[in-house]
């Protein structure tokens, strides 16, 4: 048998030969002692490789296999609880931001009431120290739908004359109070806001 014959025999064993070639090899295996011995050797080697595996596979016990595998798999992913989500959200930058927001809110809530500048302040008025708001009774005298500033009273503080102006924004709503220096007290006639640019 040459190398080509050997290869043909290998293909014959695998059933990979064309029918005509397979018939020819089958005839040689049946009649030629050399072909017969080679065929027998290959068949036996295959059987001897398979036999112990088949035998062991028949007695294999897979009972504990899944438990062994499952025990080493990563934990299944589940939806995080509210507490876990909160913890994940409250990272240091977020906490700093929240603290800053809380501080700003506390400042706004506790700071003194601002005294905004009038919509059209008189050119001669200047900033003056903050004073207490006008009494309710005085405000009640103002018309409910007033659109023009209403001078409630003039007061003197630390030697300068100040005019207290009250302007209701809407009936029964917020009242904006302006403190303005009287024109004769400022001297230079320049208008100036009190302490805040934005009336509350």
């Amino acid at each position: 048998m040459n190398d080509q014959d050997q290869e043909k025999l290998s293909l014959f064993l695998d059933g990979a030969l064309a029918p005509e070639d397979a018939a020819e090899v089958a005839r040689l295996v049946a009649t030629d002692p050399e072909w017969k011995a080679a065929h027998r050797a290959l068949k036996l080697s295959g059987e001897m490789m398979r036999a112990p595996v088949e035998q062991a596979a028949r007695s294999a016990n897979f009972d504990g296999l899944w438990a062994g595998i499952e025990g080493r798999l990563p934990a299944p992913e589940r939806a995080p609880s509210l507490l876990e989500r909160l913890r994940a959200f409250l990272t240091p930058p977020v906490l700093v931001g929240l603290a800053a927001a809380a501080a700003a809110a506390a400042y706004v809530a506790t700071r003194p009431a601002p005294t905004p500048a009038p919509a059209s302040p008189s050119p001669g008025l200047a900033a003056t120290p903050r004073i207490a708001p006008a009494p309710e009774s005085a405000l009640a005298a103002a018309p409910a739908d007033a659109s023009e500033p209403v001078v409630i009273e003039g007061i003197e503080s630390e030697g300068s004359k100040t005019v207290l102006v009250s302007q209701p924004v809407e009936p029964g709503g917020t009242t904006v109070i302006w403190l303005l220096d009287a024109p004769d007290a400022a001297g230079d006639g320049a208008a100036a806001p009190t302490t805040d640019d934005d009336p509350i």
Binding site: D3, Q6, S10, L13, A38, L42, S45
Partner: peptide, 10 residues
């Protein structure tokens, strides 16, 4: 592989 096995078993 088969050629080697055949030689060994012959």
């Amino acid at each position: 592989a088969r050629k080697k096995l055949q030689v060994a078993l012959r």
